[in-house]
Amino acid sequence: MMQAAADMPVWAAIAVAFFLLVGSGLALIGAIGFLRLPTFYERIHAPTLGTSWGIGGVMLASMIFFTVSSGRLVFHEILIGIFVTVTTPITFMLLARAALHRDRAEGNGNVPDKQNKSQIAKGVSDESESWN
């Protein structure tokens, strides 16, 4: 690190440091919120801080660092960014639907009971709610 970092101009070092700290700070705030918020549906919002600009900040820092230190354009980090941006909503949606399904089946919490039509059509084919 020392060799590459010592050759780097100060403005680039400051930019890398700024984006790195913004990204990891947002990831930390997201984790804190994930611990502190009281209900599951509120908690689901907190980690998206880490997956939106948390990832974005760290990836930008990495792109600037490797572009400046190697002297050519390096932006393959954007692949991780795109990949995480596209996949995180899928996991969160699936988990939220699973949580809604379990809460409705057990009748706990004040979850809106909406999809009665499809619930009846599906019948009583689910026996996965009993374990916690």
Binding site: P9, V16, L20, L21, G23, S24
Partner: peptide
């Protein structure tokens, strides 16, 4: 100068992520 900035930023970021 830039080595110090980078080193402290990376250490701090690693602490926060941990």
């Amino acid at each position: 100068m830039s080595a110090i900035i980078l080193f402290s930023a990376v250490s701090l970021a690693q602490l926060m992520l941990a």
